[in-house]
Protein backbone atom coordinates (compact mmCIF):
# COMPACT_ATOMS: atom_id res chain seq x y z
CA UNK A 1 0.00 0.00 0.00
CA UNK A 2 1.30 3.44 -0.93
CA UNK A 3 1.00 6.31 1.45
CA UNK A 4 1.43 9.94 0.52
CA UNK A 5 4.40 11.88 1.74
CA UNK A 6 3.73 14.94 3.87
CA UNK A 7 3.89 18.06 1.70
CA UNK A 8 4.72 21.65 2.66
CA UNK A 9 2.02 24.26 2.25
CA UNK A 10 2.85 26.29 -0.85
CA UNK A 11 0.80 29.43 -0.29
CA UNK A 12 1.68 30.68 3.17
CA UNK A 13 2.42 34.38 2.90
CA UNK A 14 5.62 34.18 4.96
CA UNK A 15 7.14 30.92 3.78
CA UNK A 16 5.96 30.24 0.18
CA UNK A 17 8.97 32.04 -1.31
CA UNK A 18 11.29 29.41 0.13
CA UNK A 19 9.50 26.52 -1.58
CA UNK A 20 8.90 28.50 -4.79
CA UNK A 21 12.67 29.04 -5.06
CA UNK A 22 13.21 25.30 -4.63
CA UNK A 23 11.22 24.72 -7.83
CA UNK A 24 13.98 26.65 -9.61
CA UNK A 25 16.61 24.56 -7.79
CA UNK A 26 17.58 27.58 -5.74
CA UNK A 27 18.05 27.59 -1.98
CA UNK A 28 17.09 30.84 -0.25
CA UNK A 29 16.85 32.22 3.26
CA UNK A 30 15.15 35.34 4.60
CA UNK A 31 17.26 38.26 5.81
CA UNK A 32 16.91 41.90 6.81
CA UNK A 33 18.17 44.37 4.23
CA UNK A 34 18.73 47.03 6.91
CA UNK A 35 20.77 45.20 9.56
CA UNK A 36 21.61 41.91 7.80
CA UNK A 37 20.02 39.78 10.53
CA UNK A 38 18.82 36.46 9.20
CA UNK A 39 15.16 35.60 9.76
CA UNK A 40 14.81 31.84 9.99
CA UNK A 41 12.15 30.48 9.98
CA UNK A 42 11.07 33.15 7.50
CA UNK A 43 9.00 36.16 8.49
CA UNK A 44 8.35 39.63 7.10
CA UNK A 45 9.50 41.81 10.01
CA UNK A 46 12.99 42.09 11.46
CA UNK A 47 12.78 41.74 15.22
CA UNK A 48 16.42 42.77 15.50
CA UNK A 49 16.15 46.32 14.12
CA UNK A 50 12.44 46.81 13.48
CA UNK A 51 12.74 47.06 9.71
CA UNK A 52 10.16 45.77 7.24
CA UNK A 53 12.78 45.81 4.48
CA UNK A 54 13.39 42.07 4.39
CA UNK A 55 14.05 39.82 1.41
CA UNK A 56 15.10 36.36 0.21
CA UNK A 57 18.80 35.78 -0.29
CA UNK A 58 20.33 33.00 -2.33
CA UNK A 59 22.47 30.49 -0.46
CA UNK A 60 25.42 28.58 -1.90
CA UNK A 61 23.83 25.23 -1.14
CA UNK A 62 26.77 24.16 1.02
CA UNK A 63 26.52 23.68 4.76
CA UNK A 64 27.77 21.81 7.81
CA UNK A 65 26.10 19.15 9.91
CA UNK A 66 24.98 20.51 13.30
CA UNK A 67 23.11 17.51 14.72
CA UNK A 68 20.94 14.57 13.70
CA UNK A 69 18.78 11.68 14.83
CA UNK A 70 18.22 8.29 13.25
CA UNK A 71 14.55 7.47 13.60
CA UNK A 72 14.08 3.79 14.45
CA UNK A 73 10.46 3.80 15.65
CA UNK A 74 8.09 4.54 12.77
CA UNK A 75 5.30 7.06 13.37
CA UNK A 76 4.04 7.75 9.84
CA UNK A 77 3.16 5.19 7.16
CA UNK A 78 5.01 7.04 4.39
CA UNK A 79 8.19 7.41 6.42
CA UNK A 80 9.67 3.94 6.76
CA UNK A 81 12.48 3.42 9.25
CA UNK A 82 15.31 3.71 9.67
CA UNK A 83 15.84 7.18 8.28
CA UNK A 84 17.98 10.02 9.56
CA UNK A 85 16.90 13.62 10.13
CA UNK A 86 19.84 15.99 9.66
CA UNK A 87 20.13 19.57 10.89
CA UNK A 88 22.42 21.59 8.63
CA UNK A 89 23.78 25.09 9.13
CA UNK A 90 24.34 27.11 5.97
CA UNK A 91 27.87 27.97 4.86
CA UNK A 92 26.70 31.49 3.98
CA UNK A 93 24.93 32.11 7.28
CA UNK A 94 25.70 29.46 9.94
CA UNK A 95 22.91 30.76 12.18
CA UNK A 96 20.43 29.58 9.55
CA UNK A 97 19.66 25.89 9.95
CA UNK A 98 17.57 23.68 7.69
CA UNK A 99 16.32 20.12 8.01
CA UNK A 100 16.91 17.24 5.62
CA UNK A 101 16.25 13.52 5.48
CA UNK A 102 18.71 10.73 4.65
CA UNK A 103 17.83 7.10 4.07
CA UNK A 104 18.97 4.55 6.61
CA UNK A 105 21.47 5.25 9.36
CA UNK A 106 24.59 6.58 7.64
CA UNK A 107 27.77 7.32 9.58
CA UNK A 108 27.82 11.00 10.34
CA UNK A 109 29.99 13.39 12.29
CA UNK A 110 29.40 16.89 13.54
CA UNK A 111 30.72 19.62 11.29
CA UNK A 112 30.93 17.45 8.18
CA UNK A 113 30.34 19.25 4.90
CA UNK A 114 26.87 18.88 3.43
CA UNK A 115 25.53 19.71 -0.03
CA UNK A 116 21.92 20.52 -0.91
CA UNK A 117 20.06 18.64 -3.63
CA UNK A 118 16.48 19.07 -4.77
CA UNK A 119 14.00 16.22 -4.51
CA UNK A 120 10.99 16.48 -6.82
CA UNK A 121 7.91 14.69 -5.51
CA UNK A 122 5.12 13.22 -7.64
CA UNK A 123 2.92 16.28 -7.42
CA UNK A 124 5.74 18.61 -8.46
CA UNK A 125 6.61 19.81 -4.97
CA UNK A 126 10.36 20.28 -4.60
CA UNK A 127 12.07 19.73 -1.24
CA UNK A 128 15.64 20.80 -0.48
CA UNK A 129 17.51 17.76 0.86
CA UNK A 130 21.05 17.42 2.18
CA UNK A 131 23.74 14.80 1.77
CA UNK A 132 27.33 14.53 2.97
CA UNK A 133 29.85 15.84 0.43
CA UNK A 134 32.09 12.89 1.21
CA UNK A 135 30.69 9.69 2.58
CA UNK A 136 32.45 8.38 5.63
CA UNK A 137 34.12 5.14 4.50
CA UNK A 138 34.66 3.23 7.70
CA UNK A 139 32.06 2.07 10.17
CA UNK A 140 28.72 0.41 9.77
CA UNK A 141 26.90 0.03 6.49
CA UNK A 142 24.12 2.42 5.76
Amino acid sequence: MNFDRILPIMNDRDTAGFFEACKNKTLVYRACQSCNATLNPPRAHCGNCGSWDTAWREASGRGRLYSWTTVCHQVHPAYGVPYTVVIVELEDAPEVRLVGQLNGSPDLCAGMEMQVWFETLEDGTVLPQWEPVEKIQQGKES
Partner: peptide, 13 residues
Amino acid sequence: EFFLPFGLMTAGQ
Protein backbone atom coordinates in the same frame (compact mmCIF):
# COMPACT_ATOMS: atom_id res chain seq x y z
CA GLU B 1 6.33 22.85 6.54
CA PHE B 2 10.05 23.02 7.36
CA PHE B 3 10.01 19.88 9.51
CA LEU B 4 7.24 17.31 8.96
CA PRO B 5 7.91 16.74 5.23
CA PHE B 6 11.48 15.79 6.20
CA GLY B 7 10.38 13.22 8.75
CA LEU B 8 10.87 15.32 11.90
CA MET B 9 7.45 14.86 13.49
CA THR B 10 7.61 14.12 17.22
CA ALA B 11 8.85 15.72 20.41
CA GLY B 12 11.03 12.67 21.02
CA GLN B 13 12.84 13.13 17.73
